[in-house]
């Protein structure tokens, strides 16, 4: 019996529900912290980012128009699918080095729990940040949160899975769609997450994941006139300033990078959701 040929996985981008290679044809070597070769990942170009924004924009009406209940169900479905891939994620996280199997397993479990946590928020956030306002006139005056639109997410450089999901889930649960630039050093869990998303009833284009250099891609997303918000969690100080300046052109909502290291295991609060929500206030005449 001859030895089996190794079947190695091709890590590609995730745009509009499909897995294309980079338009530029470029790739880069992903290595462990000791420098061992792990895989080749696609190095996305600005044109991949442009295509991803088009896909995200196309997905926005359907996703933001879906009921909160439905979005919550789909997030919960992502958690279910992720749970089934636990072993693969543990293997990918430990291969990078620096983390034991036990710790990696805890991270994956926390990721699943995080998705379930955010799934529950889908139909409650409106009650928490919306309000019925008393006004001096014969009107019902109601404020309700609305999704901002297409959000660019520069994924955290720590927590290749938990940090990534903790950045994506709050953006999409409220009805935004997003273009994510994955952590450059540890991109493989991000692409495996894309495989999870692709099989979770999540409409194509709601989440688009690019691997490559944030320093190269982020400014294009920050300057893009069809992107409505940008989460700079994973950007270094210099890149964050550049991006925020570019984002000012069309008044994007900007979530600045955290001041210090983030404990992704801690309960996140609703700040990441409200960062990409807008408030719509409706005046409705009473008694007409």
């Amino acid at each position: 019996m001859s030895e089996r040929l190794a079947v190695r996985k091709t890590y590609k981008l995730f745009i509009g529900g499909a897995f294309p290679r980079s338009e530029s044809g470029r790739s880069y070597e992903v290595t462990s912290s000791k420098g061992d070769f792990l895989a080749n990942a696609a190095r996305a170009s600005r044109k991949d980012a442009r295509d991803a924004v088009v896909a995200a924009r196309k997905a926005f009406p359907g996703w933001s128009g879906a009921t909160a209940y439905n979005r919550g169900q789909i997030l919960y479905r992502i958690a279910e699918m992720l749970e089934g891939r636990r072993a693969q994620f543990v293997a990918e996280i430990t291969a990078v080095g620096g983390v034991g199997a036990k710790q990696a397993g805890d991270m994956v479990d926390a990721t699943v729990d995080r998705l379930v946590w955010y799934a529950g928020w889908s139909d409650k956030i409106g009650a928490v940040v919306g309000s019925a306002n008393p006004v001096a006139g014969p009107y019902f005056n109601l404020s309700s949160p609305e999704p901002t639109g297409v959000v660019a997410v520069i994924a955290p450089q720590t927590g290749p899975l938990l940090g990534l999901v903790s950045a994506i889930a709050p953006v999409i649960v409220t009805g935004n769609t997003c273009v994510v630039v994955a952590c450059e050093r540890v991109p493989l869990p991000a692409i495996t997450l894309a495989e999870v998303l692709a099989t979770s009833d999540l409409p194509g284009g709601v989440v688009n994941i690019l691997t490559g250099s944030a320093a190269e891609i982020a400014p294009w997303l920050a300057g893009h006139m069809d992107v409505n918000g940008i989460d700079l969690t994973g950007a270094d100080a210099e890149l964050a300033v550049t991006c925020e300046e570019l984002a000012a052109e069309n008044l994007k909502r900007v979530l600045r990078p955290p001041a210090g290291p983030v404990d992704w295991l801690a309960e996140p609060g609703i700040g990441r959701m409200t960062a990409f929500l807008e408030t719509k206030t409706v005046w409705h005449p009473i008694g007409v």
């Binding site: 924004v53 294009w220 006139m225 069809d226």
Partner: peptide, 9 residues
Amino acid sequence: TGRYAGPDY
């Protein structure tokens, strides 16, 4: 302008 344009405009 050197930046991607959006259909909103």
